[in-house]
Every structure is written in structure tokens, then in C-alpha cells.
Simulated scan of single mutants.
Amino acid sequence: MSKSSRLFEIIQMLRAAKGPLLAQQMADSLEVSKRTIYRDIASLQAMQTPIYGEAGIGYVMRKGYDLPPLNLDVDEAEAIAVGLSMIARTGDADLWRAAGRAARKLNEVAPGTRRLIASSWGLEDIQTIDLAALRRAIRAEQKIDLRYRDENGQATTRTIWPLALNYYVDTAMVVAWCELRADLRHFRLDRVQDWSVSDEHFTGEGSALLEQWEQTQKDDTVLTRGF
């Protein structure tokens, strides 16, 4: 766990606590040493976080304290984007509208999050492909070589330009430009037999292709919600 994540967790624990928390309690929860907690508390206090107390007695936080803005890395922003999209599963219209507002704000500072789309139903774990590596290839506009089996069981070797990743109820699907078909295609990840990230890139061409795909989806009847 990074220091910034640990500081966030300490603040959350102190905000939720009904009484003073000992450094040892926080250390056990975060799986770090008590000395690390002391240093983290000192860092937070130096940043004007209203934490009061001392070693051996425990620490408390002033009620009503709001968290300062947090800096998110790319993976954290993408995780939040997918989580916001999945709020559609709750059936709570107000919460869904709030999630939409939050997603638009997130997209302002992390535009790449619009490339991750989640359906309103669950998805089982995918074992056929490394999704983190696939997302990195999408961000880097890096080509992928794969051996793919279609719905009839026929296998072909493809080089694709990955543009977006869709999470559906039974699988995930990558939207890509296929060099073999010279067209936009959808590839179910559970039909990928083998794959590797190529050394070749399609730098600067991904956004236009993604917009082209988005245009084709406007009249699509698939019930998948996106922001």
C-alpha cells in the first residue's frame, strides 16, 4: 500500500471511530508497524489535518472534517469509472444520475475513463487474458496479436488495434480495429486462445476510430448503459 493510500485509510478510520484509536490498532489493520503509524499521523498533522492525541493514549479527529482532494493514478481512476457505471445495478434512479455527474467530472480530468464501459449485470472472472495489460495497451495505443476462435469454433490469427473494453454479463469484449478484416470488430475475451502485446503502435489514430465506433452504437438496441 502506498503512503498516500495509507494516509487516506487512517483518516477514514479516525472519522469512523467512536472513540480514541491507538496506533497499534491502526497498525494491525493496515499491516504496518506502529512506528509507521506515528510517522503518518505526524505527516497528516503537518498538513493541517485536525488529528488530536498522543502515543499511548490514542488519536481522534475533529468531527465534520472533510477529506482534501486526492490525486488518483490511472488504475484508480479507471476503477472508479467502472464502479460508477455499475451503480446502474441498484435500480436507484437518483443514485444513477449522481453517478453520471461524478463520471462526467472524472472524465474531465481523466478522459481515458470513457473507454471502460460496464453493463448492468455481473461478470465472472476472466482467465483467458490479462485485463490490466489489455487496458495498458488501450491507453498506449499499442497493437495486439492474438489467436481467436469465433462462434463456429474456427481459429484465426489477428492483429488488432484495441480501442475500448466492454464488461458484459457473461464476458468482457474488446472493441478494436482488425487488420485482417480492415474494419471495426468486437472480440470476446473468453474466445481468445493466445495473445501478446505487439511492439507496434497506432499512435494518434485511436481517438478517431473510437469516435467512429461510438457513432455506430448510437442506434444499437443493446441495453448497456454508459455515461
Rank of each mutant, 00 (worst) to 15 (best):
L72G: 00
E108H: 09
L21R: 07
Y167A: 12
L106Y: 06
P50E: 05
Q45T: 08
A27C: 04
Q193G: 07
A155M: 12
D145W: 00
V82D: 05
L123F: 10
I57A: 13
N71L: 14
R135P: 01
Q127I: 13
G53Y: 05
E205L: 12
Y65T: 08
T159F: 09
I138D: 02
A182M: 14
R35M: 13
K18W: 09
L7K: 00
Y59G: 03
E124W: 10
C178E: 05
W161P: 09
G91R: 09
Q127L: 15
R101L: 11
R191E: 03
A176Q: 06
R185T: 12
M26Q: 03
W177C: 02
A46H: 01
K105Q: 14
I138Q: 03
P68L: 06
I11A: 07
D194V: 05
S198D: 02
P68M: 05
P111W: 02
V82H: 07
R158V: 05
R35T: 13
R147V: 15
L134W: 04
I144A: 02
V109H: 11
I126Y: 01
P68V: 09
D73R: 01
R89M: 13
R158S: 10
A172R: 06
T90Q: 06
G112P: 06
V222P: 03
N166A: 14
K63S: 14
D125R: 15
A17M: 04
M1W: 02
L72S: 05
D130A: 02
Y167C: 08
Y148I: 08
R114C: 12
I117N: 07
H186L: 15
V60E: 09
Y167W: 13
A155Q: 14
A99W: 03
F187V: 00
K218R: 14
D92Y: 05
A176W: 03
V169C: 15
E54R: 09
S196N: 12
G153P: 09
W213C: 10
C178A: 01
S5V: 12
I37Q: 01
A79R: 11
R139Q: 12
R97F: 11
A99C: 07
T203S: 12
I126K: 08
V169F: 15
R89E: 12
A182I: 12
L70Q: 14
L189I: 05
D75T: 14
A110S: 13
I126Q: 09
M26D: 03
A27Q: 09
Q127M: 13
D220W: 13
L180Y: 05
A208Y: 04
G226D: 12
L22Y: 08
A172Q: 06
V169K: 15
G56K: 06
P111I: 10
G206E: 01
